[in-house]
Design a binder for these strands. Structure first.
Length: 415
RNA sequence: GUGGGUGUAGCUCAGCUGGUUAGAGCACCAGAUUGUGGCUCUGGGGGCCGGGGGUUCGAAUCCCUCUUCUCGCACCA
């Protein structure tokens, strides 16, 4: 028997509907904030992710689905959404349009990781990217959008905030960090990171490295005056909007392109998978990808985990709706022909396709949660009428065949 | 990256120390009710007991091995 690939899943109708709702709410919210949809390919040239996400990140080092196509180009299934959006922004020269420019996306991402609850190899993200605004108000707007999403869904999330500074102050910090870590025992990978990208040591998974880091210098102590000012204004901006947050100067996040503001939405309800979403500012990335120096800030929210939180906004009471046609040979085709026009009126109409007994047909009506059963059997036809049965009360009454479609389509609960 | 658990019907699981044709509940289909759902009763279909190898007269059960799914920790969405 064929099996679904590890870390992927089928969405059966009920869960697919929940996901669709999560997407609708996200799209409505993004539109309301002035973001337009930007769809990019599911795969890009590998080089794009290596450059933008960062060569020495976990994602690029060990989590990418990379393959060669028949033209021997190296392609990679997108592990995150920002790189593709930035590529499209640059390639389509969108920086020549009015700025700031705002885009959102919703779709699957791919990471080769060990699956567990709330962690998948094909995962869904909703993200927004805001280009061309360098000031802290842009950071605040993006953070507020994500915050509102969880609020609307009724999910309890907390916001964690940090600033990792700009290129200049990070250089200072790097030096201090390297000086501190030199001579201390780190894992093999971190010894290498220490040379290539010392900041990555901060979120090393090895316990020994984490222990060594407890006393390490903190980035917050090395922010330059401009970065410090920016950070302060982001914080006061959030406070002005009554968005609560905590500060955590260990929050560096797993991608290289961030600078200044980084943030994460967290939960305590999913165990180890506590990050519902996150983002930050990435001022140098557009330039790195070949565009002009356009500042940017964005976020990405994990939809799988959001759904796992069982958002109250998704809970709906099942209600009976629609009409089930009950009929019998030899008049089955005639009855279907009479009822079928209801579908053109937007009515939910169902009927048995296998010539089952009356009893079985009523059972199907019930199981399909129909509000009404419309009975058009040989006896009814010969009397020029149909019978209408209310599946909630069991009451039944005759209906004239002449204006059947009109009568039925005006009943309550048929759509 | 690391540590556990698990695999028997579509689903949830039972099957004690190896012993005939492998069971239950739910679900499905049918009948009781030859034109009436939700309740009840009766019957029915459906299993290479995850794969391979071994021990044995005999393996779902014991041993080895591969594998699947899943959960925790770390990190991330």
């Amino acid at each position: 028997m064929y099996q679904i690939p590890r870390g992927t899943r089928d969405f059966l109708p009920e869960q697919a509907a929940r996901f669709r709702r999560l997407e609708e709410i996200a799209v409505a919210l993004a539109s309301q904030y002035g973001y337009g949809e930007l769809r990019t390919p599911i795969f890009e040239y590998t080089e794009l992710f290596a450059r933008s996400v960062g060569e020495s990140t976990d994602i690029v080092e060990k989590e990418m689905y990379t393959f060669q196509d028949r033209g021997e180009r190296s392609l990679t299934l997108r592990p995150e959404g920002t790189a593709g959006v930035v590529r499209a922004f640059v390639e389509n020269k969108l920086y020549n349009g009015p700025l700031p420019a705002k885009y959102y996306y919703f779709g699957p991402m791919f990471r080769y990781e060990k699956p567990q609850a709330g962690r998948y190899r094909q995962l869904w993200q909703f993200g927004v990217e805001l280009f061309g605004a360098a000031g802290p108000r842009a950071d605040v707007e993006v953070i507020a959008l994500g915050w509102q999403y969880f609020q609307e869904l009724g999910i309890k999330a907390t916001l964690v905030l940090n600033s990792i500074g700009c290129r200049q102050c990070r250089e200072e910090y790097k030096k201090a960090l390297v000086a501190y870590l030199q001579g201390r025992k780190t894992c093999k990978l971190c010894a290498d990171r220490l040379e290539r990208n010392p900041l990555r040591v901060l979120d090393c998974k090895e316990e020994s490295c984490q222990r060594e880091l407890e006393e390490a210098p903190r980035i917050s102590q090395y922010l330059c005056p401009q970065c410090r000012e920016h950070f302060e204004r982001v914080k006061s901006g959030l406070s002005a909007l009554s968005i609560p947050f905590t500060q955590d100067d260990r929050l560096v996040r797993g991608l290289d392109y961030y600078n200044r503001t980084t943030f994460e939405y967290k939960t305590t309800e999913l165990g180890s998978q506590d990050a519902l979403g996150g983002g930050g500012r990435y001022d140098g990335l557009v330039e790195l990808i070949g565009g002009p120096a356009v500042p940017a800030v964005g976020l990405a929210l994990g939809i799988d985990r959001t759904e796992l939180m069982d958002p109250p906004a998704l809970r709906r009471e099942p209600r009976r709706r629609g009409v089930w046609l009950v009929t019998m040979d030899p008049v089955t085709d005639e009855a279907i022909a009479l009822a079928h026009p209801l579908r053109r009126q937007g009515v939910y109409l169902g009927y048995d396709l296998e010539g089952r007994s009356f009893k079985a047909q009523f059972k199907q009506a019930d199981r399909n949660n129909c509000r009404w059963s419309l009975i058009i059997g040989p006896d009814d036809l010969s009397q020029g009428q149909a019978m209408l049965r209310d599946m909630e009360t069991g009451e039944q009454r005759p209906l004239a065949l002449e204006n059947l479609v009109e009568l039925v389509s005006q009943l309550e609960g048929v759509k």
